[in-house]
Nucleic acid binder design. Sequence first.
DNA 1: TTGGGGACTTGCTATGAAATAA
DNA 2: TTATTTCATAGCAAGTCCCCAA
Length: 629
Amino acid sequence: MKAGVPRGLRQVVCLRLGNLSCRWASGTQPKASKSGLEEKQRKDRVKWRQLEHRGPYFAPAYEPLPEEVQFCYDGKPVKLSLAAEEVATFYGKMLDHEYTTKEVFQNNFFNDWQKEMTVEERCLIKHLDKCDFTEIHRHFIDKAAAWRALPREEKQKLKEEAEKLEQEFGYCILDGHREKIGNFKMEPPGLFCGRGDHPKMGMLKRRIRPEDVIINCSRDSKIPEPPAGHQWKEVRSDNTVTWLAAWTENVQNSIKYIMLNPSSKLKGEKDWQKYETARRLKGVVNEIRSQYRADWKSLDMKKSQRGVALYFIDKLALRTGNEKEESRTADTVGCCSLRVEHVRLHRHANGHQHVVELDFLGKDSVRYHNCVPVEKPVFWNLQLFMANKDPGDKLFDKLTTSSLNKHLQDSMDGLTAKVFRTYNASTIFQEQLQVLTRAEDSTAAKILAYNRANRAVAIYCNHQRAAPKTFEKSVRNLQTKIQAKKIQIAEAQEELRKAEVDHRIKGDGKSKRILEKKQRLLQKLEEQLGHLSTQAIDKEENKHVALGTSKLNYLDPRISIAWYINLSWGPCGRPGLFCDKDVPDQMSLMLSSMPQVLPPLSFGMVWGGTSNGLEHEGQVAAQPTGSRR
DNA sequence: TTGGGGACTTGCTATGAAATAA
DNA sequence: TTATTTCATAGCAAGTCCCCAA
């Protein structure tokens, strides 16, 4: 990249560029769609002509425990059969994990474990609380420690073997291009770790054999060889799908796939299309917003519920909320599946009128808790929807996700509820970058601005994380550094003062040089302090916010690039150059010539969306709170 | 119209490599 | 050189949305 660009700033955007350059660069991106029809045609057309790969890499066979590692039952050592021992190691490995303290996990594990036992073992081992897995647990801890302690050469050797494996199994040929596969290693057997209060947690995920796997490749390609002595469940050639191999997992009875890496042309094109669809939404979003406002007044409950639900989806980034099988998954909801018990209405709260309090577990059992002032008709409608219902009843009982999406399709081809998340996320990101960035700021301040814009989106999407384990310690370390820097600055100030006096007395060239040197030192130290302080703020603000998901899935990379280039090379002298129509071609040109010449562009025209009216600064203060339950 | 399966995207955590500081 | 921190990504769970059959 071009020299002279502040290093830190480059780093923060390189994260996006790196992602983008492999996903969209090399001229692989499709042209921007001219119409919804074209997009549909592209979606429906045959996806590939040639697909060749080596098939999945299977997990190594179970390696029995050494003789000295014993499992004990009721205080006595018991030599388990191989199958039972293997499942016991799954539990033993997890002994220090919270999962093994949960009753559901324990019961499911024990139930499935018993199925793997011999008749004699089943007669003997009746209660989990009499099982002692501590030696097994210690064995795996020691094994991990031994691995860490391996000499550098040994580790290097293992690394080279892994690389060789990746070269062999980790790539496929798709229409003449060598593409990276996302997950070429078959998932090893283990215990199912569902999130939240998942009723199936602890169940045995059984080992997948070649006989369970369907291979997808082109007819004329070299069919992957199954491991010796085995055969595939099926070999097919379906060029309307993108997966290379598929199998059904036993816990949830769902299909799992081997697919391409996000860096592949195929995934990159889909990613591109996603953002183009979201950008098309800006052309109709005002109309949709007017429509859902009009629907609030409708006497038809279907319409008024749909209007309020769309308002939530648009304003609060709620997920669509498909129906789920109650007894087989954790109890999580989205917009359409909200229940009365998830909503509380406050006529006055926190100095606002018509406040809606939403409190529910969303995707991955992450808690969404938000008190948000809403428009008056929304408030009264909600009151109506909740009237005469039990807490466990559906809030939007006349609404389904399919009817909602069908309605959206009428407004725009390809529009579904989840497009609003992408659209609003990227719009907020661009707006926040504009608001928070000043050209005259230091690099550290610009990085902070970038991260804050990213954070505004992550908060909007309720992307949370558990605070890193080392968080408190690293904050302390940073504070120590700040204090040390302050002391250094005080000393430098004192030395500068002395140098000034010395120069005033002597007035010669040497004392002048010393004075200038001290001034430079002080300036440098103050800059370093500024950088450290900014880092501390950034770290603290980011304690519970996960930036990665929005960065990867919701923020159009072109916004980052436009911002970065604008800050590095100044605003565009040719307004209108980067107008919507030209975005893909401009990006293509820009990326292909990234190291040499970068065309000017006008930041602010990449998306140029219409805000959803949410006060993002305000929402940061009243952000959804809570964590996984 | 509905329910379920299939295909795909989104999301969080753990881990290990690379970068950075001491 | 070593310790610590940061960052990318592997791993896999859990969503969304489309399609098809009953």
